[in-house]
């Protein structure tokens, strides 16, 4: 590239005197990333891709061990309470709906509604986690502890990992709620809600897979 071309592409030379405080990069589309996705959103997609392999490994481990003869305690397939888990699964799925409503509200700068839906989503998520705690307690009472047999270890690890993911999601939702209360979540920051939403929907989708493979399809 010749010098003249070089100068022509050097935007700083073109910035008029009065606009001197505009950083020279602002004249090039520096705000636009190469892919068009923001860094944060792309990073979240990448992270979720990685999470697929995490849950893939855990689900595979469970599927490997669910057909094994247990040496002690009940096999996990005998003590499922499908109606109960169906209800808590439904609650979790509905939280994806409220998450979308929260995003839609904040994009319209309707902060009151956005806060309501964020809190609702967090509450629905908490209901799911509470259901999981109840389920675990029941299973332990029925004789399946974490160390009782192979299936117990695999079941509690897989669903426990999912529960921790939901809990982290609830923490993020509550943080957003507090940020919004303190006026630190303007409509221009709607993407933050969207990114937390991506995580939340991912965790929901993983639960659909777990519920189908672990609970519904018999070993």
């Amino acid at each position: 590239m010749s010098v003249s071309e070089q100068t022509a592409t050097a935007p700083a030379g073109a910035v008029p005197e009065g606009a001197a405080h505009v950083p020279h990069d602002a004249t090039t589309p520096a705000h636009h990333t190469s892919t068009g996705l923001s860094h944060e959103k792309l990073a979240m997609w990448l992270f979720l891709g990685s999470e697929c392999l995490l849950f893939g490994g855990l689900i595979s481990t469970f599927l490997l061990y669910r057909t094994r003869e247990v040496t002690a305690g009940p096999p996990v397939g005998d003590i499922y309470d499908i109606p109960f888990t169906s209800v808590s699964s439904f609650v979790l799925l509905m939280s994806s709906l409220t998450m979308v409503l929260a995003l839609s509200a904040i994009q319209r700068a309707d902060h009151r509604r956005a806060r309501t839906w964020l809190l609702t989503t967090a509450l629905l998520g908490s209901t799911f986690v509470a259901g999981q705690v109840y389920e675990f307690t029941t299973f332990v009472h029925e004789g399946l502890g974490y160390t009782t047999n192979l299936q117990g270890s695999a079941f509690y690890t897989l669903t426990g990992f999912h529960g921790v993911h939901v809990t982290l999601g609830i923490l993020m939702l509550l943080s957003l709620f507090v940020m919004s209360l303190r006026g630190r979540l303007p409509a221009g920051k709607a993407e933050t809600v969207e990114i937390v939403g991506l995580y939340w929907h991912f965790v929901d989708i993983v639960w659909i897979i777990i519920f189908t493979l672990v609970y519904l399809i018999p070993a």
Binding site: S50, E51, C52, L53, L54, G56, G57, L58, T61, Y65, Y146, T147, N149, L150, G152, S153, A154, T157, F161
Partner: peptide, 21 residues
């Protein structure tokens, strides 16, 4: 990394909490 993370978690749960993996 997530795959070895699963393996490491399973081993850790075996060793620390008495799981059976």
């Amino acid at each position: 990394i997530p795959v070895i993370t699963v393996a490491l978690f399973l081993l850790m749960f075996d060793r620390l909490f008495g799981a059976n993996f």
